[in-house]
Simulated assay, not measured.
Amino acid sequence: MSKLSIKMNDPRLAFIGRVDFTDPLKPMFTWPGSSVELKAVAEKISVKIKNYRNCYHNYVGISVNGEDPKKTEITELKEETEVVLIDGLDTTKESRITIYKPMDAAHFYEISEIILEAKDKEAELLEKPELPARRMEVFGDSVSAGEVSEAVEYAGKPDPEGHEGIYSNSWYGYSFMTARKLGAQLYDEAQGGAALFDKTGWFHGPDFVGMETIYNKLRFNDQIMPMTDWDFARYTPHVVVIAIGQNDANPENYMGNDEEKSKKWKDGYKKFIDTLREKYPKAQFILTTTILCHSKEWDDAIDEVAKSFNDKKVQHFLYTNNGTGTPGHIRKP
């Protein structure tokens, strides 16, 4: 049996997403889909991982050569544990491995070691994978995070009650499926329940926190640990998708009904876009919501803001059945 332990500062590892390198030997993964990629020859792959739980069942995911992933539950809390991610790989050829975070701020985790094992030959870590040149970024909510995407029996239906996160998988969110089809990196700043403004939406209850607070954060849920700032110089996307407006009707669905509050939201939404455009002046911006049921007035407000820019680099996208497609989350194909 050959066994190779890889430290997380090994230069042959590639990272995608807002990964926290405060301790480079124990990088922390906070946002959904954030990942480490490697090329290897191995039969079995494990990680040493420490989980910081907020809610739900918590998982770490692995995909081999871009194929459908496997999720493994992390049951230990705040204690480092060794978790087997996959076994039985073909050691006659190299594999491209993606170890990724399937969930949003239901938890954070840090990885201190990746362990490669093989029975009949030497386990090997190969050269650093080349990352796609195209770059995307999404600022969104649970749909952008792939929440409840694996509940295929509930397609077109409300989410299963008490699902406890077992059906959530960022791999099957539209954002990551789009990135894979385009051959692009994706930084997915998506959080279930997030609205634009603080004190609205469903995230971080009962003291709700909005995208206006978390969009520029690395650690973004102080129910787990204190928030920290993100350095925007670390990543510049070509395309930015803003998919906010689904959760903003909580606690009050005022859009189109209260002129003053409606104007405040539209002004705040425009300011949010302006802030990101200052950071990414060359990027194409796509404004959208989802096919999850919601009031049309929110999409009308987004359309009004998009048109106010009078700029081809800011476009509003509507799905055919926008806001009317399903009462529950979007399921994987």
Rank of each mutant, 00 (worst) to 15 (best):
V83A: 07
Y52C: 00
M255Y: 08
A283C: 13
W31I: 02
M227K: 12
N322S: 04
Y215Q: 06
G193W: 13
F15D: 09
K199N: 07
A118V: 13
P69Y: 07
P11Q: 07
K332H: 05
E79N: 13
K3E: 12
V148T: 09
D274W: 12
D303P: 04
E80V: 08
N257C: 09
K263S: 11
K93R: 15
F197N: 09
M227D: 09
I242E: 02
M28S: 01
P251V: 14
M103C: 08
A118Y: 13
E73Y: 05
K282H: 14
L276N: 05
E37W: 08
E117C: 07
D104C: 05
K181E: 11
A283S: 15
Y52F: 03
Q191N: 13
I49K: 00
T275A: 12
G183W: 14
L4Q: 07
K307E: 15
N322W: 01
V83G: 04
I45S: 00
T75R: 11
D303F: 04
K264W: 03
F139A: 07
L318Q: 11
S46M: 01
D311W: 12
E37P: 00
P333V: 10
V148L: 05
T75N: 08
E124K: 14
A151V: 10
I224M: 01
H107A: 13
P237H: 13
D207Y: 12
H163V: 01
Y154G: 04
I286P: 08
G193F: 14
T30F: 00
Y154P: 04
W265I: 05
V143L: 04
S149H: 10
E67A: 01
I62D: 00
S168I: 09
M255H: 10
L287A: 06
G245A: 05
K26G: 00
T75V: 11
A195H: 09
N257K: 15
N51G: 00
D274Y: 12
D267L: 14
P11I: 12
S170A: 12
E67F: 02
K26T: 01
S308L: 09
N65Y: 00
N221K: 03
K93W: 07
